[in-house]
Structures are given as structure tokens and as C-alpha cells.
């Protein structure tokens, strides 16, 4: 492992064992990849391919019924060997997740502001007042018109696109060195998608943040990623620089994915 690697996953295997069942199904097979500091790695695959599982395993957020073997090195430490207490300090502060489905990711009975304040306060010593001001600052950065009003609103009062932007504002406020963005634009309209991708681009340039960009859409990945890893049926079938993979895909599944995104583009009026 070279010193520049921020994240290095080696021989990752994930197994699923339902409670009370004897059979253990392997879902992720020997996945290995590296992410350099300041770079964006796109993880591409169809639904059910295991890309979300892979990304959640980095933060040890998988359900009990999953077991993980292999190694996930982050800044030199193997995350799979760390005790829960230490992992908690890395979550959010070092590695932040932008979860898929913004509508379900907010607690319906807790205000937007409280979501932001609690996140910041769990990693920094801040008074509620200062945390609130910071929350407004980061929401302003996400181009919200009236952030001081927004923080007292509840998730059900916001649209999916707005919530997605709030998710990014929360991530910004935590200033992590690695962001895992899980399908950040799925279920959004094209205009909002463009806006979100633009914000992620700014985050990459302005804060020099590294990113794992998980998506099924080659188009989204091609906008942000430096490198790409293609996962199919829990196996890494192809990886390389985005230009090389896009021009000369080796695996037939990669070709299918690229064809699909191009065809979709053409079909649009």
C-alpha cells in the first residue's frame, strides 16, 4: 500500500446469514480497490450488485446478519479491526455518508436544524447557538434561499431534492476527508441532479475531499470520477481510469451499462 492511498480495500468478502438459518450466502466476492487522496472513485453496478453493501461495510454500518472478512484500511488503520468506540469517531468526522433515498434518511419528527446541530456537536465542542449559526452558514452554501427559516422546518415539509441538498450541507459541515455518496442523484429530476452534481464538484475542488461515488448511472459517474470500479453480482469485474473504461470497456457488463446510459440519453427528446 502506498502512502498516498486514503482508502484501501483488500479481499473484501461479505456474507449473509439470516437469523436462525444455517446457510451462509456470499454476497461480495473478493473485492479490492484503492482510493487516492483527493480523487473520486466511481463504483458502478446495477441494483442488487452489492455496491451499497460494499460502501456501508467501510463504516461498519451493516446489519448483524452480515459478516465481513478482508481488510479496509483508512489512513493506515484497518477499520474492520477497530472497536465500535473508535469507529464512531471516524463516522461523520473522517468518513461521511450521503445515504441513498433522502426522504427516508431524515427522522420525520426531528427538525432539519436539529439534524445538523446534533451532527456537528457529536464531533466538536460547540454551543447550540454556534452550531445553529454554522448550520445556517452551510445551508447558505447549498444555495438555500432562507436557511434561518429552513432549520426550524421538518423533513416532511421539504421536497426530495431539497433534502438531498440538506444531506450534502450536513456532510459539508462535518468536513470529512472521505465522502461516500450512495446514489446521490437517483430519484431526482434532471435539473436537481445537475445542481447536486455541481455541488459535489465544488466540494471536491474547494475542500479537496476524496469521494466514493456509488451509482448505477455511468453518466453521473463520468462527471465526477477519476477512476471507476464496476461491480456485478458482488464481484469487481473491471476497474481503471474513467477515460479508459469508458473508451474500451473490457467486460461485457460494463459495455451494457455504458450502452444503457448512452441509449437513455439519445432517447430523450
Amino acid at each position: 500500500m502506498s502512502t498516498e492511498q486514503l482508502l484501501s480495500i483488500k479481499n473484501l468478502n461479505i456474507y449473509l446469514q439470516e437469523h436462525g438459518s444455517d446457510t451462509r450466502n456470499q454476497i461480495i466476492h473478493n473485492v479490492s480497490f484503492d482510493l487516492e487522496k483527493g480523487k473520486v472513485l466511481g463504483i458502478v453496478g446495477g441494483s442488487g450488485s452489492g455496491k451499497t453493501l460494499t460502501s456501508l461495510s467501510v463504516l461498519s454500518l451493516l446489519h448483524d446478519k452480515f459478516s465481513v472478512t478482508g481488510s479496509i484500511h483508512f489512513n493506515g488503520a484497518d477499520l474492520l479491526q477497530l472497536p465500535e468506540r473508535k469507529i464512531r469517531k471516524i463516522r461523520g468526522k473522517e468518513i461521511a455518508l450521503i445515504p441513498q433515498n433522502p426522504m427516508a434518511s431524515f427522522n420525520p419528527i426531528i427538525s432539519i436544524g436539529e439534524h445538523m446541530v446534533e451532527s456537528m456537536r457529536s464531533h466538536q465542542k460547540l454551543t447550540r447557538k454556534i452550531a445553529k449559526e454554522l448550520a445556517i452558514y452551510y445551508l447558505e452554501k447549498m444555495n438555500f434561499a432562507d436557511p434561518s427559516d429552513l432549520i426550524s422546518q421538518y423533513p416532511f415539509q421539504l421536497s426530495g431534492g431539497m433534502l438531498q441538498r440538506v444531506l450534502i450541507a450536513i456532510t459539508l459541515s462535518l468536513q470529512p476527508s472521505l465522502i461516500i455518496a450512495d446514489e446521490p442523484t437517483t430519484a431526482l429530476d434532471k435539473v436537481t441532479e445537475d445542481h447536486i452534481l455541481h455541488q459535489l464538484e465544488i466540494m471536491k475542488e474547494e475542500y479537496d475531499t476524496s469521494m466514493l461515488l456509488v451509482s448505477h448511472d455511468f453518466h453521473v459517474v463520468s462527471r465526477l470520477a477519476d477512476e471507476v470500479a464496476v461491480i456485478h453480482n458482488g464481484m469487481l469485474v473491471e476497474k481503471g481510469s474513467i477515460v479508459n473504461v469508458f473508451r474500451q470497456p473490457n467486460h461485457s457488463y460494463t459495455k451494457q451499462l455504458i450502452d444503457a446510459s448512452i441509449r437513455l440519453k439519445r432517447e430523450k427528446p
Partner: peptide, 9 residues
Amino acid sequence: YVMYARSRG
């Protein structure tokens, strides 16, 4: 959202 709460540390 509970998983997301955990993911924020």
C-alpha cells in the same frame, strides 16, 4: 434514518 444517524457518528 437510524442508520444515517449512526453514520454521522
